[in-house]
Structure formats: structure tokens, C-alpha cells
Amino acid sequence: MKKSSTIWLWIALVLCLCTTGLNLAEGRWLPVAIAILSIAGLCALLFAGRRLGYIVMCLCAVGSFAVGVAQNVGALGAVTAVVMSLIGSALVPVVTGLFIRSQWRELK
């Protein structure tokens, strides 16, 4: 894996761990469970070079988006909840995809 991809994956791992810690502190158990699965996928991609890790991250992003919208639609309104959840759940998988797309065939 390229050095730039590895650096990004480490940054993403730290960001995801911090976000998970905040959700845990606020007692948001479903987002924590989804984040733990996503972190496992991120680790599989970072440490083992597994494509499946990226796929798991993307599936978790879909789940995170759905939970984020459902939890925030009442407080923020539908449009704002959708936009914020989309940004929050898609940022790491999209940026990761941009970093690893040229290396996809090299992954196991």
C-alpha cells in the first residue's frame, strides 16, 4: 500500500476512534456498535490489506447514515439531518476510496 494511503488510514482510524468515544460518552449505543464494525473494517484494510475491510466500512457508512437521519430528523429537520448524516457517514469511506482506488488490484 502506498505511503499516502497508509497515512490517511491512520488519520481515519484516529478520527473514527475519537468519534466512537464521543458517541460512547453520550450513550449512543447503536452508532457505537456500527462504528466498532467500521473500525474493524478499517483495521482489516490498514493492517492486512483486505478489500473486505473497505466493503465493511462502506456498509457501515450506510447504516450510520440511516441511524443519523433517524436520530436527528426531529431535532434538526429532515433536510438538515440528511445532509449532516451524509457528510458524517460518507467522509471517511469516500476519501479512503479515493486513496486506494489505484491500489484496488493489489489488495487481497
Score class of each variant (00 low, 15 high):
100 I>L: 04
31 P>A: 11
62 V>I: 04
35 A>G: 10
71 Q>I: 03
15 L>F: 09
60 C>Q: 04
5 S>N: 11
64 S>N: 09
4 S>M: 01
1 M>I: 01
61 A>V: 04
99 F>T: 03
65 F>N: 03
9 L>S: 08
11 I>F: 08
100 I>M: 06
35 A>I: 00
105 R>V: 09
61 A>F: 03
47 F>P: 05
72 N>E: 09
58 C>G: 12
80 T>W: 09
22 L>C: 13
73 V>G: 05
102 S>H: 15
37 L>V: 00
26 E>I: 00
99 F>W: 11
92 V>T: 08
44 A>V: 04
23 N>T: 01
79 V>W: 06
2 K>W: 13
99 F>S: 14
7 I>T: 08
106 E>M: 06
75 A>G: 11
38 S>C: 08
96 T>Q: 05
5 S>L: 07
11 I>G: 03
13 L>G: 13
1 M>Q: 11
12 A>I: 00
33 A>F: 12
97 G>N: 13
13 L>A: 14
85 S>R: 00
31 P>Q: 11
10 W>T: 05
82 V>M: 04
34 I>V: 04
19 T>F: 12
43 C>Q: 06
54 Y>S: 07
11 I>N: 05
53 G>S: 10
85 S>W: 05
53 G>P: 01
18 C>T: 02
75 A>C: 06
65 F>H: 06
48 A>V: 00
83 V>D: 15
90 A>N: 12
86 L>V: 11
80 T>F: 11
92 V>L: 10
62 V>Y: 13
73 V>R: 02
104 W>S: 15
88 G>P: 05
81 A>N: 01
93 P>C: 14
97 G>M: 09
107 L>Y: 10
52 L>H: 12
88 G>F: 10
8 W>K: 02
73 V>T: 01
35 A>C: 09
23 N>G: 06
82 V>E: 02
2 K>L: 10
104 W>R: 13
37 L>A: 09
100 I>H: 06
6 T>I: 02
60 C>T: 02
55 I>R: 06
84 M>I: 00
43 C>W: 07
58 C>Q: 11
37 L>I: 02
71 Q>F: 11
27 G>Y: 13
55 I>D: 10
108 K>I: 01
77 G>V: 00
36 I>R: 08
16 C>Y: 07
80 T>Y: 10
101 R>V: 05
4 S>V: 01
24 L>Y: 15
87 I>Q: 15
58 C>D: 13
18 C>F: 15
11 I>E: 03
32 V>S: 12
19 T>A: 11
14 V>K: 01
92 V>S: 08
5 S>K: 07
41 G>W: 00
69 V>H: 07
101 R>E: 15
30 L>S: 10
3 K>P: 01
26 E>F: 14
49 G>D: 07
13 L>D: 14
44 A>H: 09
24 L>F: 15
19 T>P: 03
22 L>E: 14
58 C>H: 13
28 R>D: 14
105 R>F: 15
90 A>P: 07
67 V>F: 01
68 G>P: 04
18 C>D: 12
54 Y>G: 09
22 L>G: 14
32 V>W: 13
31 P>V: 05
2 K>F: 13
22 L>T: 08
49 G>H: 08
1 M>A: 13
108 K>N: 05
64 S>C: 06
29 W>L: 12
55 I>V: 04
